[in-house]
């Protein structure tokens, strides 16, 4: 019996290993592609004999990845801060004061969550042109904040209702604290677990956002990483080695962050997924 079990486990471990290797294939191909010289037409499955690290330098400079990292970081950071501030502020009365109006507003946020914002691409584009915000980082921030606010509010409301004890707030109120005081001094610090989930969800989504960015950030100086990658891909169709090098550099910061904070990422992204 024990022997059978051991054998079964060995087989299952082997299967798991094969699956892991399969999932690594595209990244392996990406690596070998990025390390080969322009004229090297050898199979993508083999490592180059002479490693062309120059691809990385050339890709970094000609794709202007530095500028793209800057834009993406700024947009992601400010959007995330705004989402947490505006979202938690909105969630508090919606969780605690269940008036008819508040119930309606909460339902409104929930129903917006189902509609992908880009189904309204045409009028949104027109709106952005009309208010003169094409090719500004601000518009990327506003669009992302608006798009992820309903989810943020939904997560905060659920968390406040299920885990924050009402006694604390009542006690503070009896002591004469104002609503704002109660919110910032007592409630907000207790929201830390859900805040960190929201931070991770919004950072991953907004960092990787292409759908908004491709429409509203077309000028060179405001382009984000995915937009830069797509134009770089278009311009270098016959120089895949450069595009591969750019792709590696583009995904590396998020990958490293993920490997360090893996548990938080998985927990945060699942809680975002559970919104249904």
């Amino acid at each position: 019996m024990d022997y059978m079990n051991k054998r079964k486990k060995a087989v299952l471990s082997f299967v798991a290993l094969l699956i892991a290797l399969f999932h690594l294939i595209p990244f392996y191909i990406l690596l070998t592609t990025s390390l080969k010289e322009r004229g090297d037409f050898s199979s993508k499955w083999t490592f180059p004999t002479e490693i062309a690290f120059g691809n990385f330098k050339e890709a970094w400079e000609s794709a202007n990845l530095g500028g793209a990292f800057f834009n993406t970081s700024i947009i992601t950071f400010i959007s995330a801060v705004l989402l947490i501030f505006v979202g938690s502020l909105a969630a508090y009365p919606l969780a605690r004061r269940q008036t008819k109006v508040n119930k309606f507003i909460f339902m409104l946020f929930i129903s917006i969550m189902v509609i992908p914002p880009l189904t309204a691409l045409v009028p949104l584009y027109q709106l952005v042109v009309d208010i003169g915000m094409m090719n500004t980082r601000q518009i990327a921030i506003f669009n992302n904040v608006a798009a992820y606010l309903p989810l943020t509010i939904f997560l905060y409301v659920g968390f406040i209702r299920s885990t924050i004890p009402l006694e604390l707030e009542e006690a503070a109120r009896l002591d004469g604290a104002s609503t704002m005081g109660i919110f910032f001094k007592i409630v907000f610090p207790l929201l830390k677990p859900v805040t960190s989930s929201i931070l991770i969800i919004s950072c991953v989504y907004i960092w990787n956002d292409y759908q908004f960015a491709i429409f509203f950030l077309q000028a060179e100086e405001v382009k984000t990483i995915p937009v830069v990658l797509s134009s770089f891909f278009g311009e270098n169709a016959n120089r895949m080695n450069l595009v591969a090098a750019a792709a590696i550099m583009a995904v590396l910061p998020m990958v490293i962050l993920f490997l360090i904070l893996q548990k938080h990422f998985v927990k945060g992204l699942s809680s975002g997924a559970m919104k249904g």
Binding site: Y92, P93, V101, N102, I105, N143, A146, I153, F183
Partner: peptide, 16 residues
């Protein structure tokens, strides 16, 4: 406490 969700409501109304 409607003023607490006013910013969120405005953002969503205007952009979505």
């Amino acid at each position: 406490l409607w003023w607490m969700y006013l910013p969120a409501l405005l953002a969503v109304t205007f952009f979505i």
